[in-house]
Design a protein around this nucleic acid. Structure first.
Lengths: 261, 261
DNA sequence: CCCTCGTCTTCCGCCCAGTGGAAGAACAGG
DNA sequence: CCTGTTCTTCCACTGGGCGGAAGACGAGGG
């Protein structure tokens, strides 16, 4: 082909998707060159495709000319499954109303937790998680709550890898983590103390439908108030129970959460 | 070309976008054939593109095989601008906490209002609006609050069209609507009584930054409780003022809302 | 049971849309 | 003025995309 060998035949669609996929929470705005580099698409090709995406509002530009995800994609994204989130939202609200803390809902996706909803007021928001964000499972409350109820083979596979260690308090020893998970199962809730972020600690409970952990409900507070965590478990547990009930009744098996294994 | 004339040369990208664009709140799940029809893409082409989109989780399938927007697009959508929404959320929360009603935040996009955030509890949710949803401006509280502060040429253009009439209470006479908007400006808030949906009424206030209506904050309740609306205006106004202040300080002109004219 | 109708999937040869290197423009520092 | 970076435009070549058609599948219905 003109200018050189076409690199092994990528479809146009794959290039468009690669361009979109170049954005993530750590790279919310990119220059055209960055975008081309990150997506592995030739600069001139990226230029053309980006123009088309921009015209459709799939991408937009910040005031300094960098590219971002556009409103149209946000709008489309709102049409994604989300049955569980919709049902759960009022209950998160309830927990927030009775505690005033940061409450969030997460599901497992692959080997990570994906935060699907979040309710927060104005006080002490250490921004540990953001809606649409991902974190590893073992250093987070919701992650431990979910992991503890996964089948054994899954947990084994999870523990077999080298685990990230965001803070010195993170538990990464397989044996110790396995024991921790056992106690989560025994108690019905998970606690963390500065395992993901220094300065914050959390409590979380799983949402169990037919014994399977479809989501987890968590709460995050400043670590100097760690003693209050126990007081917060009961409201969480109650809300999770209600959400589970609503999920059992509400949806007759419609695929509502993500579920890559 | 094989099979016949290529219809005027549409780019691959435009087809992909047409496929995504075929989904909207009234068509959240589609069969492949529907999708091909609605997007104007040949069936076999749609089949191939959809397969690629599905593999990337841009689309997913419901249990009965129909296609939906996938989790990956939801995730991407969460990276869209949203500065204003993020800042505003705690204040919506505050209004909800003090009133217990359905509170939502909307911006203008073209000739419609786009709902960008919503907080609701378990009681009386007539689901008038959904996050990511659009409604015409004149029958909604937030719409009137926004329209009242738009420049005159814009309002004229809006009124010049034939206006939809979702209920018999909807005001569609240009003269009457113009007078209504004048009184919104005078009072600083807008009220509606069953103008969008029978059985519900609403109050809304604009969020004004440098005199320009960047968003509107609204509340919806059952119409049998219409007398309580006045009581709800003050909390709304207060929250809107705080949001406006935060917006003025927080962002130095970054493009955060949509703004097609 | 076969037939019909609608939907989904696969196939295949043609050819134009897409491609990417290169050159040039625009801009920012130094 | 020069240098480095990013953005934009150009162009000749070609293989990925195209869509009609035919086949597979499934759900009624007679």
């Amino acid at each position: 082909m003109a200018g050189g060998a076409r690199e092994g035949g990528r479809s146009v669609t794959s290039k468009v998707l690669a361009i979109l996929g170049a954005f993530d929470s750590a790279h919310q705005q990119l220059t055209l060159s960055d975008l081309a580099r990150r997506s592995g698409v030739a600069l001139s090709t990226a230029h053309r495709l980006v123009a088309e995406l921009e015209a459709w509002q799939a991408l937009s530009r910040t005031s300094d000319g960098r590219l971002r995800i556009g409103m149209r994609l946000w709008e489309l994204g709102q049409l994604a499954p989300g049955r569980l989130q919709d049902m759960a939202h009022p209950w998160l609200q309830e927990v927030f109303a009775s505690t005033g803390e940061n409450v969030h809902l997460a599901v497992r996706d692959g080997l990570e937790v994906l935060y699907v909803d979040k309710v927060h007021g104005r006080r002490a928001v250490p921004i540990v998680s953001r809606t649409g964000g991902r974190l590893p499972m073992h250093p987070t409350g919701v992650g431990k709550a979910l992991l503890a109820y996964e089948p054994d083979w899954f947990v084994q596979a999870y523990l077999a890898r080298k685990l990230e260690r965001p803070t010195p308090h993170t538990i990464i020893e397989p044996g110790r983590l396995a024991r921790e998970l056992a106690s989560v199962r025994a108690q019905g809730y998970a606690l963390t103390y500065e395992e993901m972020t220094l300065g914050t600690c959390s409590a979380a409970v799983p949402v169990l439908v037919d014994g399977r952990p479809v989501a987890a409900l968590g709460i995050v507070i400043a670590s100097r108030r760690a003693r209050e965590l126990h007081r917060l478990v009961e409201p969480l547990r109650e809300a999770a129970e209600q959400i589970a009930r609503a999920a059992r009744e509400g949806s007759g098996g419609e695929g509502h959460g993500p579920g890559r294994a």
